[in-house]
Structure formats: C-alpha cells, structure tokens
Simulated assay, not measured.
Amino acid sequence: MGHRESDDRVRRAEVVQRPRPWRIRRAAGLMRLATFRHDGRDQTGIVDGERVHPFLGDPDMLAVIETGPESIGTGPGLPLREVRLLAPLQPRSIRDFVAFAEHVEGVRRAVDGGNGVPNAWYDAPTFYFSNPHTVIGPEDDVAFPARSLTRDFELEVAAVIGPDEHIFGYTIFNDWSARDVQSREMQVNLGPAKGKDFAGSLGPWIVTADELEPLRDSDGFLNLWCHALVNGVEVGRDLLSNMGWTFETMVAYAARDSRVVSGDVLGSGTVGNGGCLAELWGRRGEHEPPPLCDGDVVTLTVEGIGSLTNRVVSGPVHPELPPVRRRDPSAARR
C-alpha cells in the first residue's frame, strides 16, 4: 500500500462519525451474540429471550464477526439456564481508553496524588494496551494478586471491531485494578502493568451496533445508563454519553499510524460518578466504600447490553523477587 493510499484510508476513518450498522436478518430480539459451554463443548450462538440458538459449524466468535452472523445458520434453541456463558470473545488486542474526565480527576488523587485533569488529556483519546490472554467471562472468579490490599473494579463499555475498522458491536468490560500495585509501579512513568494485567472481564454477550443505534444522541454518543453494584449495593452510576469522545473517534485515533483489525476490543475507560472505587476515594479523601476483598461480588449493568457479575478471590502467593542488581559506575569505565 502506498503512502497516499494509506493516508486516504486514515482520513476516511477519521471523518466517520457513525458506524456502518451491522444488520442481522433476524426475528425481533435476536441481537445478542454469545459464547457458551454446553455439554462440555464451547459454542457460539444468538440469544433470543431465554434461549440461545447455536451457530452451525461451531465457528468461534472471531469467525462470526468476520463472516457476518447473518450468513451462518443456527440450530434449535437451548435454554439459557442450561448453558454457561463465557467471555463472548477472546480479543486479538485490548486498547483501554480513558475517556471520562471525572474518572481521571478522582483516580489521580487516589493513585498518584495529582490534582485536576492534565491538559494533555484534552488533546486526544489516550489508551493503554491491556492483556487479551487473561480475559474472563460472566460468573468467573477474578483472582487478584494475593498481596494486593487495594482492590478495585472499573465499569466500562467495550466496542468490538469488525471488518474494515467498523464497530461490530458492544459488550461490558470490567478492567480490574490492584491500586496499590498500580500506584507503586507507575512511579516509574510506565504502565499500568501488574496492577492491571491479571484479569479483565467481558460479557455477558455482544450486542450488535445496529441494535444500539436508536440510543445515540445528536452528537453520536451512546446514551446508556451504567450502574455498578458491590454485594448488591449500588456504588456508582453514570451515562455513557458523558465520555469525551465517541467510539468512532477512538477507533480512528487507534488506527492512526497503526492497525485496528477484526476482533480488537476498545474499552471506553471507566465511567464517572463511582464507576470505580478509586474515583470515590480520591474525592472523599478516604477508602470509603472499602476496597474489594475475597468473596465480594461485583455486578456491572449497562442499559441495552445486560449485566456482568464476578466474584473476587485471591490468586497464589508468589515468592519475593531477587533484589535488583544496582549499577556499579566503575564498571562502565575502561
């Protein structure tokens, strides 16, 4: 591909304000695409009410996204209560953005002692790469680093990318955070790393983009209420439309001088107004509500998508690292 063709492609992506709707030939209500386990076998299918219709040929979700669900036949429905929902997709990559100013302000106070929103935040939708290999699904236990005492959830919506850099659909994303680990490691001005990469939850399914199109506001933002509950008690809620950039802008920015491909996942970043505990800690100056602990159950609910629930547990205790080898200045001299 020549430079001119590549530049034209990027310019076309950056001016897109709305996704090309991904239409599925379906009966009313068939818009949720799930990955599930039934009789020891992992399958994908279309959720219709309280039943899921498996796709014929056992395609994984990436194949469904690239082929188009409208071109794949389905079998007889199975009762949802008889299957175990899994993470709807094993992403090719996860870019997690930070698109809510209120979250940035609160977490800066809690994690690194900063104040306000950095001017650089307003320049472009910033993101970091998370770990696609530790994604878990609905009802899975999330194993935090055993030594972490400041455990947190993050309520996000994730866009799932389809062919030609278009948004295929949306799901809920919980970007779990070990805040004490994160705070320490980010003093190196790199990361987050081990404070984040132990787990991320996706689910309960993917809702295709066309289904949520009527819920957009006049500026192209999805007007969805998002709620976070810990042990059944609501600790935060916000509108997804309070994000600073549309998902289409974030996709275009991610693709700039780079590539976005089918199966990539782009997180919205944590919603404000209690979308995570650290934001509340930063605003209140104390750990209230308290950090998550073993046995706590977190449920994230997003209007038009569904609910995602996980239970907090502790992972294995690892041995201490060997001490760092400090540089001997004399060893650099001849």
Rank of each mutant, 00 (worst) to 15 (best):
V312C: 15
A120T: 14
H3M: 14
A63R: 12
G40S: 09
D141G: 03
Q182G: 14
V157M: 06
D42A: 13
V313E: 04
A13I: 08
P132D: 02
A332R: 15
E165I: 07
W22Q: 10
P19N: 04
R179L: 06
T126N: 12
Q43D: 10
G29A: 12
F129E: 06
S130C: 07
L300E: 01
M1Y: 08
N242A: 15
V188D: 15
P69S: 06
S241K: 15
R9V: 05
L78I: 13
P91F: 01
F153Q: 03
V142A: 13
D217K: 07
P319I: 09
R311N: 08
Q182N: 09
L212A: 03
R92P: 06
L239T: 11
R81V: 08
A99N: 12
R20M: 10
I167L: 11
R84H: 06
E102Y: 00
D296E: 11
D328L: 04
A101R: 09
R283L: 06
M250V: 04
S268E: 05
R32N: 08
P79A: 10
D296T: 03
F127N: 05
D238W: 07
R109L: 05
G40C: 11
G304N: 01
A209Y: 00
D217R: 03
R92H: 11
D257W: 11
S6T: 11
T171S: 00
E139S: 14
T44G: 07
V52M: 00
T67L: 08
H3V: 14
V324E: 15
E14G: 10
E213L: 13
E102Q: 11
N131I: 01
L212M: 04
F153C: 02
Y170W: 02
P118W: 00
G162A: 06
A87N: 02
E320H: 11
P88G: 07
V98T: 15
H227E: 14
T134H: 09
R9H: 08
R51V: 02
A28S: 13
G195E: 14
S183F: 01
H103I: 03
G191F: 03
R109C: 05
A178P: 02
P145I: 00
F221N: 08
L321Q: 14
G269P: 02
C293F: 05
L80D: 11
G285Y: 00
A193T: 11
L202H: 06
L280M: 13
P322A: 01
S262G: 09
I172M: 14
D197Q: 09
R326K: 08
L300S: 11
R11E: 14
I161C: 13
R325V: 15
R41K: 13
H3D: 15
P163E: 07
T44F: 08
R20Y: 06
A124D: 12
C276T: 06
R11A: 14
R84V: 06
H227N: 10
F173C: 12
A254N: 00
L240C: 12
R20S: 05
N174A: 12
W245H: 10
D58F: 07
G40L: 12
